[in-house]
Design a protein around this nucleic acid. Sequence first.
RNA 1: CGGGGAUUGGCGCAGUUGGUAGCGCGCGCGGUUUGGGACCGCGAGGUCGAAGGUUCGAGUCCUUUAUCCCCGACCA
Length: 417
Amino acid sequence: MKLSKLFTKTSKSVPTDETSKNAQLLIQAGYVYKVMAGVYAYTPLGLKVLENVKQIVREEMNGIGGQELIMSSLQKRSTWEETGRWDDEVVDVWFKSLLKDGTEVGFGWSHEEAVIEMTKQYLSSYKDLPINVYQFQTKLRNELRAKSGIMRGREFVMKDMYSCSVDAAQHDKFYEDCIEAYKRVYDRLGIGKDTYVTFASGGAFTKFSHEFQTICDAGEDVIYLHREKNIAINEEVLDDATLADLDVKREDLEKVKTAEVGNIFNFGTQKSEETNFVFTNEQGEQQHVYLGSYGIGITRVMGVIVEKFADERGIVWPEAVAPAKIYLARLGNGDKVVEAADELYAQLTSAGTSVLYDDRDMRPGEKFADADLLGIPYRIVISEKTIEAGNIEIKARSETSVEHLSKPELMQKFGIV
RNA sequence: CGGGGAUUGGCGCAGUUGGUAGCGCGCGCGGUUUGGGACCGCGAGGUCGAAGGUUCGAGUCCUUUAUCCCCGACCA
């Protein structure tokens, strides 16, 4: 992508109506556009980051047998009445509206009931199980208060997966597979080291659910860590009974601020009993489905990554999610410089390496500042200096020193032969 | 939903005891520049969040209201 053609522009000043780091930087750099409190649009650059995050999640979910689909945002009243969750007293984040004929509809804040209803159509025998489906869906929640930029919005992208199993054993197997898959997701996103599988409140069926909590000052949660045993406990379930259950002592725990980046639930047969969600077992009898749900907040993860890695000069994207791998800064407009930069851009791009090509007629300082603000992992400079020296300058966003490479060395560095 | 703060060109801000809106950035044109956000000249751009009120006169005072941010509560 040539920066001269890019839809967005960076800004010299930070938006002061936002105080959270992720919102300030993402808006300043042009990754997101704020529509209203808790509602953000994702620009071409921001969308690229989101798609990168989604692709990692997609690969891992497919890897454990997940099948991607997409459900609807508009939800039927009857779907949710079965479980009592249409009631605003029970679920206070509903956005609801009316069809022209007066029929009430809701906007999907979650899709558990919806996936059950849909799956009933396709599940009849134990031979059909297990079923694991997931989607990337924009969830709409009428939160009392939006906060922390894209980390807690009224509209956000979530990967939600639902598992249907014949029994507890089949469910547990998938549940464990999912924990491992989630760990791989966070590793690949660059936040694995600081992300903990955390015991949290679990709803009716199990004592605990598991949250994936990433250490992050901007987060809303507090967890207690037992580093030695690698046990993490959400503050909300920390009591003597929990400590006894997990066999840890309170004084061995370390309190840390975290952001919840994933949450997985075991519903057992509770929900399928409420919704009469059954299949025929080997004995020819009707049996209730074992259900689980597994979420990852895609947009929130993006915010957490910004919060965790940004420095005083701007965003620092891990390579796996960066909107481009290379920021190619062309300094000057001389024929030789333009020719060399154009050529390198074409070569890198045709080799499948994503490049943000700063072909704008601007001073070096501005280009360097934008490269830093945008947080692209590598900055390459082509200038009269580098042409004279017969090399190419490269600097990692996370480093302070530059390196000079010959073109073949550079190509090799990016795996291009 | 309780408490606090804010709202003035695209962005960031100033605006005195009420006297008819200004600065920086950005933008357009011309020129000089080019390795860490250059400079000069000219120029465009504002019903001061909205509605009422007080006043000869309101960005400024009063009332109502909308929106945004923060703290708290909430987060199945």
